[in-house]
């Protein structure tokens, strides 16, 4: 691997990285929104809906991401869904992560101390206000560490998109490796790059977590 080889492929590598970031951020954003909606909907007193949503979550958490991608990309047309590779990739990331985010938000709601809800009940707050003003903020704050963690996991899952020919970074690296017979060097560089990236993002994430959860130091425990 020499410098001007790298230089020649730089545009495609940068574009690949751009696609990676795009897929990760759009997929992650939709996943968060969908996951949150699912978590809220599961609290409604409507058993068939809760059952269906539970099944959704179990399916997307119980099967490999790659199989889900194949289903969307290759199997999609058979149910009228003609998605291009990148669209399938983003949709796949969104659906996959939404199931995990739904569970994270569910746990967040469970982590709201009962006492805070009781205080709201004792002043006569209506259920909607209790949810919107007390339970939701507390649940969201409690969910932050897990959300950060899942977003990091999602960033690593983007490499799987290369298998369905989404032109993200891994795909570009493999193309370059094949065309220049530098497989080993290319993969090595890819590994090093990802390691660095994930390490930096993890540290950043930890700092964000710390700032947000310092907020939530519980009252009754100190005193």
């Amino acid at each position: 691997m020499n410098a001007d080889l790298l230089w020649r492929y730089l545009p495609s590598l940068v574009s690949g990285f751009g696609v990676t970031v795009f897929c990760w951020s759009v997929g992650g954003a939709f996943g968060l929104i969908l996951g949150f909606a699912i978590a809220l909907a599961r609290r409604l007193p409507f058993p068939p809906l809760r059952w269906a949503l539970r099944a959704f979550v179990e399916i997307f958490r119980g099967t490999p991401f790659l199989v889900q991608l194949f289903l969307l990309y290759a199997g999609g047309p058979y149910i009228g869904l003609r998605l291009g590779a990148t669209a399938a990739g983003v949709a796949g990331l969104a659906l996959y992560s939404s199931a995990y985010f739904a569970e994270i938000f569910r746990a967040g709601f469970g982590a709201v101390p009962a006492g805070q809800i009781e205080a709201a009940i004792s002043v006569g707050m209506a259920p909607f206000d209790i949810l919107a003003r007390v339970a939701l903020p507390a649940a969201l704050i409690a969910a932050v560490p897990s959300i950060v963690n899942m977003l990091i996991i999602l960033s690593k899952e983007t490499v799987v998109l290369s298998i369905i020919t989404v032109p993200e970074l891994m795909y570009q690296v493999q193309t370059m490796a094949a065309e220049t017979f530098t497989a080993f060097d290319a993969i090595f560089a890819m590994a090093a790059f990802y390691w660095l990236l994930v390490e930096c993002v993890s540290r950043l994430g930890a700092r964000v977590e710390k700032r947000v959860t310092a907020f939530l130091a519980h009252d009754g425990a100190r005193g």
């Binding site: 690593k156 899952e157 490499v159 799987v160 290369s162 298998i163 891994m170 993969i187 890819m190 590994a191 990802y194 390691w195 990236l197 994930v198 390490e199 993890s202």
Partner: peptide
């Protein structure tokens, strides 16, 4: 290292 680098890689 082994948690940071994606499994496929």
């Amino acid at each position: 290292l082994f948690r940071g680098v994606p499994l496929l890689v």
